[in-house]
Amino acid sequence: MQGLEGKVAVVTGGAGGIGSALCRRFGAEGAAVAVFDIDHAAAEAVVAEIRAAGGAAGAFAVDLTDQDSVVAAVAAVEDNLGPVGILVNNAGWDRAGAFLDTDRALWERIVAVNLYGPLHMHHAVLKGMVERGEGRVVNIASDAARVGSSGEAVYAYCKGGLVAFSKTMARELAKQRITVNVVCPGPTDTALFRDFCGEGEYGDKLRNALVRSIPFGRLGRPEDLPGIVAFLSSDDAAFITGQVISVSGGLTMAG
């Protein structure tokens, strides 16, 4: 894709299932990849894969819930790899449960990762993009933001907020030619999804029910996401901003 080679791409949650797939794709496209993850050893493993394939990458330990940690990590990227040209807010966390059975401590943890994390990242990265007059932001939300999801009320609340925030940033930053778009995965076979479903008979029933409801007849895979994210980060998508795209095998068809 045009315009990715030589760019610095920051991917949060870069050591996870979807995150690592995104990082490997950016590396293959010639971008220098900053793998952001709270698990530094896991981030280093992804970096080793990218370098072994001939790409450039660096691992950065960061707690997205801590603004100072985010600011320091972004500064370290710019010192080591160069100005950030692409930001992908991919990190997320959830724990399933009926809303009325949850408590404030759980809400605050979910909000800290899924809502404040991206806010911290935008605030730390966008100032430099504005100064340079260019940049690409892709926020990984969820189809839970578009249609709701039983057992994920607070997570959906955060992801819905991320969609609205992204559209607002797209409007505010359009004159600087900075694009901001959203990708919404449907049910995707990741560690987060498996944790959400749980083990045993109940988990199997939930997974099977979801598979039956997806027109493609399978769960999403991490490898289903990098293509659209790389496209939205490229020069090929220079006139696309404020858009929300589902990657769900047809489960969600929103106009």
Rank of each mutant, 00 (worst) to 15 (best):
M1I: 15
G3R: 00
E5M: 09
V8W: 04
V8K: 04
A9Q: 05
G17Q: 04
G19V: 14
G27Y: 03
E29L: 12
A32E: 10
A34I: 06
V35Y: 13
D37N: 06
H40K: 09
H40P: 01
A41V: 11
A45W: 04
A45Y: 05
A45E: 14
V46W: 13
E49S: 05
G54M: 06
G58T: 05
A61W: 02
V62K: 10
V62S: 12
D66I: 07
D68G: 12
D68A: 15
S69Y: 12
A73C: 05
V77W: 09
G82R: 03
V84P: 06
A91M: 11
D94R: 03
D94L: 15
L100Q: 07
T102D: 12
E108A: 03
I110W: 05
I110E: 07
V111S: 06
A112Q: 04
V113L: 12
L115C: 08
Y116F: 15
P118N: 04
H122T: 02
V125S: 09
E134H: 01
G135T: 08
I140N: 02
I140H: 03
A145Q: 09
A153F: 05
G160K: 08
L162T: 02
F165S: 00
T168Y: 11
A170Y: 12
R171L: 15
E172L: 11
K175F: 12
R177S: 14
A191R: 06
L192K: 03
L192I: 10
F193S: 01
F193H: 02
D195C: 00
G198E: 07
E199T: 08
E199C: 00
E201F: 11
D204C: 01
L210F: 15
R212P: 02
G220T: 04
D224T: 04
I228M: 15
V229A: 12
D235V: 11
A237K: 05
F239P: 00
I240R: 05
I245L: 15
A254E: 11
G255H: 09
